[in-house]
């Protein structure tokens, strides 16, 4: 898999620090499962956290803390590797999609466009969803109310930034406007994290926005 577009390094640093909001964390983790180069990057950004931990001063533990740990270790088993069923989707999102991308229950969201929300915890800020754009279809031009992370899982689309195929990630700031067009041949399916409602540019589409559920 040749990946041309990666998350902004600032996004990867936030992932390492644990300060990225939950839906974005899922998208980044999924990209990491597909992208060797970014796994190497995250090793470096994690290292910053590791070094900061190792150079922390020592807080005093409560008396008997070590004995408590050793007692817990007695009754605790080793962790088993996580077996992820192979349904053709990357491991970090496999449990959302027990029957793979074919089993997704899509919700109509405009001509040629469908979405499916993925559950997040109640503490999550933002929204995680799958977006499917029919092969050859244009998504209405839109801007973003906040950061948007889009990871292509299947198919490809083009916009003014280039061609985004499987594994590529579009890491867009709030000011970016674009109009993706799905390539002919195969439906384009993306994993998307957004932290605000997308703002569509044309007034007609803006009126339809609540209907689109975007």
């Amino acid at each position: 898999m040749t990946i041309a577009f990666h998350p902004d390094i600032a996004t990867l640093m936030a992932f390492s620090a644990g300060t990225l909001e939950e839906p974005y964390t899922v998208v980044v983790a999924t990209h990491l499962a597909m992208c060797e180069a970014c796994r190497e990057q995250v090793k470096r950004t994690d290292l910053i956290g590791g070094a900061l931990l190792a150079s922390e001063p020592e807080a005093e533990m409560v008396p008997g803390a070590l004995d408590r740990l050793l007692a817990a270790a007695d009754s605790d088993d080793v962790a088993q590797p996580i077996i992820v069923p192979d349904t053709g989707v990357p491991a970090p999102i496999a449990h959302y999609l027990p029957r793979g991308l074919d089993g997704v229950r899509w919700r109509w969201s405009g001509p040629g466009v469908a979405v499916a929300d993925l559950p997040s915890s109640s503490a999550a800020k933002g929204r995680l969803m799958l977006l499917r754009v029919e092969a050859g279809r244009k998504v209405p031009e839109h801007g973003h109310g906040g950061q948007e992370l889009t990871l292509i899982l299947q198919g490809a689309y083009r916009d003014r930034f280039g061609r985004f195929g499987a594994g590529d990630i579009a890491d867009h700031d709030e000011d970016v406007e674009h109009q993706p067009i799905a390539e002919p041949g195969e439906d384009c399916i993306c994993l998307v994290a957004v932290d605000a409602k997308l703002s569509f540019r044309s007034r007609l589409v803006r009126t339809l926005q609540p209907l689109f559920g975007l």
């Binding site: 939950e22 964390t25 899922v26 983790a29 999924t30 990491l32 499962a33 796994r39 962790a79 590797p81 996580i82 992820v84 491991a91 970090p92 999102i93 496999a94 449990h95 559950p119 997040s120 915890s121 999550a124």
Partner: peptide, 8 residues
């Protein structure tokens, strides 16, 4: 909500 890469 997602499987961490650590065990995989």
């Amino acid at each position: 909500p997602y499987v961490d890469l650590e065990g995989i």
